[in-house]
Design a protein around this nucleic acid. Sequence first.
DNA 1: TGATATAATTTAGTCCTCAAAATAATCTGG
DNA 2: CCAGATTATTTTGAGGACTAAATTATATCA
Lengths: 405, 405
Amino acid sequence: MTSLVPDPTRRDNTLAIVATLRNQGPMARVDLGTANGISSATVTAIATELLRHGLVTELPAEPHRHGGRGRPKTLIRLDPEAARVVCVKLSLNEVQVVVGDFTGQVRHAETCTLNTAGLTPEALCDLLEERILATLAPLPGEPRELGGVCLAVQGVVSPASGRLIWSPALRFRNAPLAAPLAERLGCPVLLENDANCIASMLARQPAYADTPNLAVIMLGYGIGMSVLIDGKPFLGAGGSAAEIGHSKFEPGGALCACGRRGCIEAYTSDYAIYREAHALLPLPPGDSAHPSEEQMQTLVRLAEQGDPVARQIYHKAGRALGFGIANVLALFNPDLVLITGSGVRGYAAMRPALEAAIDEALVPELVGASRLAIHPWDRDMTCLGGIGMILDATDATQLASVVQP
Amino acid sequence: MTSLVPDPTRRDNTLAIVATLRNQGPMARVDLGTANGISSATVTAIATELLRHGLVTELPAEPHRHGGRGRPKTLIRLDPEAARVVCVKLSLNEVQVVVGDFTGQVRHAETCTLNTAGLTPEALCDLLEERILATLAPLPGEPRELGGVCLAVQGVVSPASGRLIWSPALRFRNAPLAAPLAERLGCPVLLENDANCIASMLARQPAYADTPNLAVIMLGYGIGMSVLIDGKPFLGAGGSAAEIGHSKFEPGGALCACGRRGCIEAYTSDYAIYREAHALLPLPPGDSAHPSEEQMQTLVRLAEQGDPVARQIYHKAGRALGFGIANVLALFNPDLVLITGSGVRGYAAMRPALEAAIDEALVPELVGASRLAIHPWDRDMTCLGGIGMILDATDATQLASVVQP
DNA sequence: TGATATAATTTAGTCCTCAAAATAATCTGG
DNA sequence: CCAGATTATTTTGAGGACTAAATTATATCA
């Protein structure tokens, strides 16, 4: 190790190349150069270092599929084995552990169910350490080769300080989680909000490359949001930005899980919809505090079949969300608002009221060119995004030690 | 001119030094180095170039006030004469033209009153060109030495495209202003929102150096806001971000000047307060559509003296603003919310309801460490900020041609 | 006056980037 | 099968930029 902190220019260029390879797959040196605005000579130099450190490999030439004339491109790709990272998604009564490789691909995933609300911070760290090591153990390679862990939780977190401020999955508040877990595991731990993970995963997709200001709203048991500004999650001063769920629909309105009244979440979340419905409509049995997927789907079906009570409930949910989105448009003016989460199942039922509410709330000048779309929900998106985030974070530190001979 | 685009590293360092000199006044080379994290040798090199181009001058040594031992510092400062810029503030029925020097100091200011609402885009450009040249004419130096103009307007603008989307001072909408004016004047024109000018002026002050995430709310005839993220105004995708005035207090509420209902502005702006008051309270005479400062001060005085009607009006205004700020806290989580504008005259009357509304709306976890403060209003702040913004903008282009011999 | 201290400049060395030249690897067409 | 033609990669050489260290400049202190 000649120098632990290489030249910042070189560091930036190296990070850009690794990021390009991760997001766009194997690529030739020339193309990496044009994609990042650097000369091919520089790419050669950087690639040589990365090869020497085993972070990338050259792809064997493929004799076929080589349209043009001259010397064929030699693609280089990230070596999947160069790092192993983990994303842990912590939600109410569920812990999901996903193992990813250096390219950001998922290699293994496990989920376990337990009572999360009863955990103390120490018990939670015990549990997470145990689950992560148990998940890693059967995999080839030493578990200690772990490059980093992303802990994705619902609720308010402060990534900078590694403290969990508040989560619906846990009873305790304002406890440091990243530092103790990092000490146990001997690797960097990034504490993140689950919505930020999803949003940064979406931002990586080419389809959203031209919408760097992106608001991603997650509908589910609660309501979360992540706002990407220039492609990066906006955290605010203390990490609690983008809390659309607790922005207001009407003063003195419905009671929210947070204890205040009139929050968007108190109208549009699963618990709010279920709360309105369960006394009035025939639903499958279940835990009254936490509506099941089956119950929610029954409710959506009722609304879509024209049941007036269910329709009314979804109408109100859509109207509240529409006003919430109107405030997001007025305050963030994003390129695109994307709605996802398990709650998108009810989007069709909410949509008319939602769109009418936005029209009612905002003049066209303030809606501007912002678009509104839904993104199909996939429960693994969170961890995919978390793996990308911890890889990006560890790149920055790891590559600091990629140095010259 | 050997090279019009110098090395980006050198360019960044040069910009940083100019910015430091502008914001913090004359400084020695050593201190410029430590303040910007660069070596004193590099500062010497950059300072030599800047001296050669006449952008900075060395301050004569002051024999007194030189505490220490060794060689005394030689302070360098920006040469005030190195550039002349103008900020034009366009508000309802008023155009203010302010001339600034390279250090950001105001050298001259003029205000004129006229009917702005009746102007077409062409007539407005005619007027602005005429006013700017007339203001510049009597000053020493050729008017054509103008380095840049900042056009600060109330309303929604898109700085990137130079288009005015919508302004309460003008009847037309969605017209390009920056380009035609730049052509007439032969210099860069920056179209900016007035709140952004004020916020970036405040951000330059040392008192706010540790609050890079700052929301500045301007109370006045309307209600505007600028949100600084990492010290820079957040514009959103189309320039219409941070429109707190048209975020919602309650669906179906009071009628707003924008034509929709329930906007914060429809409760807390001067026109909204006056609208509630003028039929019920004895106020000085005036134009009914646009309350005068005298009328508003009378109203504030009535509220502070305990008049129940006036108190009730300010209570409601404060409550609406409180809910608006709660949404800003939930969505932006700023370090600090600063309230300013001519409407701060009524802050004391609004304050109890405002603070109660924030408490009612948000759990402490979401208020976080965000603070709330007022900043005394000074009508010249806008143009001071605009001068700073146009100087920053022209630095970037100007300094591109500051090159080696 | 000389010792000491601090600021500014110069020097020497390292690193990085890029353009251009050289080299490598392939296809094309006779 | 071989001589261009073509494109990719690597090497080379030149030009900047930055820093640490040495040097020079200018003060105070005793």
